[in-house]
Structures are given as C-alpha cells and as structure tokens.
Computed example of a mutant assay.
Amino acid sequence: MMISSLIGGFLAAIMALSVAASALAGEASGLPLPRFVSLRSDEVNLRTGPGQRYPIEWIYARKDLPVEVIAEFEAWRKIRDWQGAEGWVHQAMLSGRRMMVVIGSQRQLRGSDGDATDTLAIVEAGVLGRLLQCPRNRDFCRVEVGQVQGWLKRDEIWGVYKGEWIE
C-alpha cells in the first residue's frame, strides 16, 4: 500500500512537471505562435535543442532572413526557415523586423497592387526584401527589394500568413 502511494505521488509529480514544461514551451514570451521574425545577425547558430549545451546543426549567414517561430522555451525559440529546416536559436539572435523571401521562380515586382500594372524589376527566387504592407483582403504585399519599392503577390513570397494583414 505504501509503495503504490509513493508511485502515485511520483507519477503526479512527473505529470505536474510535464504540464509546467509544456506551458513554458508555448508561452515564454506571451506572443502568438506561430509568428514571423527575422535573423538579427549575419551569423546565427541553429541548435538541436533549447540551450548552448545542444550541438550546432547549422550556421545561418544571412542577416534579415525571415524565419517562423513555432515554439518557445525560456529564452530559446524554435524556428523554421523558408526551406523547412527547424532548430533552436537564442531570442537575442532574432528581430521583430518583417522580412520576406521570394519563392518559386522569377517574379515581377510591380508598380501597384494589380496584375496589369507596370513591372519595376524582375526578382529571382531566394531574394530577400523588407515586408512593408499587406493590406487586408488583398492578394499583394508592398515590399522593398534593394532600393526599389513595389508589390508582389502573397503566394510569391514567404514571410506572411495567408490571411494576415500588415499596415
């Protein structure tokens, strides 16, 4: 009888720790998950787990690359990049600056938010740009690539959610 009480208490303690850990993993910052951010530095270590004791799996060498925060644990953020790679980075290596990356093939950077508008530039897949505006109920977002501001379709970029609007 005493052993079953000890086992029951032990299991209850493990469950309480598990619940506390999952609460920390999802709500460390209080910001919504998932969400887009960008890399703050030209050298960011992607680790296999949330801490410096975990091995470095990859080193990003592209400041302003947009990434998606998909989980949190204390000061660590689990991120996903536009190619699907996932891992953990320290929150200090992330910025709230909204960026985007061109996906697919060559895209036309347009003068306004419509298919029949002038082309300002042709941008290649993998090109980074700053996300300036994604109006509500519109198919286009206003971006800045290099020194040129224009419009790209939402489905031509990675860094904004389908129904998300940015003013």
Rank of each mutant, 00 (worst) to 15 (best):
Met1Leu: 11
Met1Phe: 12
Ile3Val: 13
Ser4Pro: 02
Ile7Ser: 01
Ala13Gln: 08
Ser18Cys: 08
Ser18Trp: 10
Ala20Met: 08
Ser22Tyr: 07
Leu24Ser: 07
Leu24Asn: 03
Gly26Lys: 15
Pro32Trp: 06
Val37Trp: 07
Val37Ala: 12
Leu39Gln: 08
Arg40Asp: 13
Arg40Asn: 13
Asp42Ile: 03
Val44Ile: 11
Val44Trp: 11
Asn45His: 11
Thr48Glu: 15
Gly51Lys: 04
Gln52Pro: 09
Tyr54Ser: 15
Pro55Val: 13
Ile56Phe: 10
Trp58Gln: 14
Tyr60Gln: 11
Leu65Val: 10
Val67Asp: 05
Val69Ile: 15
Ala75Lys: 12
Lys78Ile: 09
Arg80Ser: 13
Asp81Asn: 12
Asp81Met: 00
Gly87Gln: 12
Gly87Glu: 11
Val89Met: 01
His90Met: 02
Met93Glu: 15
Met93Tyr: 10
Leu94Lys: 00
Leu94Gly: 10
Arg97Gly: 01
Met100Glu: 06
Arg107Glu: 10
Arg107Asp: 05
Arg107Ile: 05
Ser112Tyr: 04
Ala116Phe: 12
Ala121Asp: 12
Val123Glu: 09
Glu124Met: 05
Ala125Val: 07
Ala125His: 00
Leu131Trp: 08
Gln133Asn: 14
Pro135Lys: 09
Asn137Met: 08
Asn137Asp: 13
Val145Ser: 06
Val145Met: 13
Gly146Arg: 03
Arg154Ser: 03
Arg154Leu: 07
Asp155Arg: 13
Asp155Met: 10
Asp155Phe: 11
Ile157Tyr: 03
Trp158His: 12
Gly159His: 11
Gly159Leu: 04
Tyr161Ala: 14
Trp165Phe: 15
